[in-house]
Computed example of a mutant assay.
Amino acid sequence: MLVDIVPVGDLPAEVKRKASAGLRTVYDCEVTVHESQPIPSGAFDANRNQYRAEDFIELASRVGSGEKNIAVTAKDLFYRKRNYVFGLAYLDGNGSVVSTYRLQTSSDGGFSERDADEIFGDRVRKEIVHEIGHTLGLEHCDNNRCVMNFSPTVREVDVKEETLCGSCQRQVL
């Protein structure tokens, strides 16, 4: 499987490296990094001061060259009535998106003594693996340690591991 990471807007090289590493480690797949794309026109919702996640998925699907394509952006995303999303993917689709905007909280709430850059890198890897998991047909998992567990806050992201539980792994690998 080839996964194409599609950077949207300004995205640090370190984020691209973390995303690639997470995908290669969990899915043992090929990963390419697409040339950076501009923010999709019309994606910004002035009333919310956020961007529509679906527009980024559509962009990744359209320009990505992989079997699975994931847009990665530093912009704050929302989906329908949710206040925000870390990412979004359609089950069994070929496009997805992750936003680093809300993953950049400086602390993990005392969960560990690690520095903010290390915590941020872990969150990026987990969310990338999570969204690609949805494109592979995985739904949210009840195991709170599994990367496919639903994580509405960074605290829940920090608690889960960067890997699939045995049940999720058997479904896709």
Rank of each mutant, 00 (worst) to 15 (best):
L2G: 07
I5H: 04
I5C: 07
V6W: 01
V6P: 09
L11F: 07
P12T: 03
P12K: 13
E14Y: 11
K18W: 15
L23F: 05
Y27W: 03
C29L: 01
C29M: 05
E30D: 10
E30C: 05
V33A: 02
V33G: 02
E35N: 10
E35H: 12
P38N: 11
I39Q: 09
A43I: 08
F44V: 01
A46P: 10
N47H: 10
R52I: 00
I57H: 03
E58R: 14
A60S: 14
A60W: 11
A60N: 05
S61A: 11
S61I: 03
G64M: 07
S65M: 08
S65N: 10
G66W: 00
K68A: 04
A71E: 04
D76P: 06
Y79L: 12
Y79T: 04
K81L: 10
V85C: 08
F86C: 09
Y90K: 00
Y90G: 00
Y90H: 01
L91I: 00
G93W: 01
S96I: 01
V97D: 02
S99T: 05
R102Q: 01
T105N: 12
T105C: 07
S106R: 13
G110P: 10
E113A: 15
E113D: 14
R114K: 07
D115K: 07
D117R: 09
D117S: 02
D117G: 11
E118L: 14
F120W: 04
G121H: 05
D122L: 14
V124Q: 06
I128D: 06
V129H: 07
V129K: 02
I132K: 05
I132H: 08
G133W: 02
T135W: 00
T135Q: 00
E139C: 04
H140W: 04
N143A: 13
N143E: 12
V147S: 06
N149Q: 05
N149C: 14
F150G: 00
S151P: 03
V154D: 00
R155L: 13
D158K: 01
D158T: 06
D158L: 09
V159M: 10
E162C: 10
E162G: 15
T163N: 14
T163W: 09
C165N: 08
G166E: 14
S167I: 14
C168G: 09
Q169D: 13
R170E: 14
R170P: 03
R170S: 15
L173K: 15
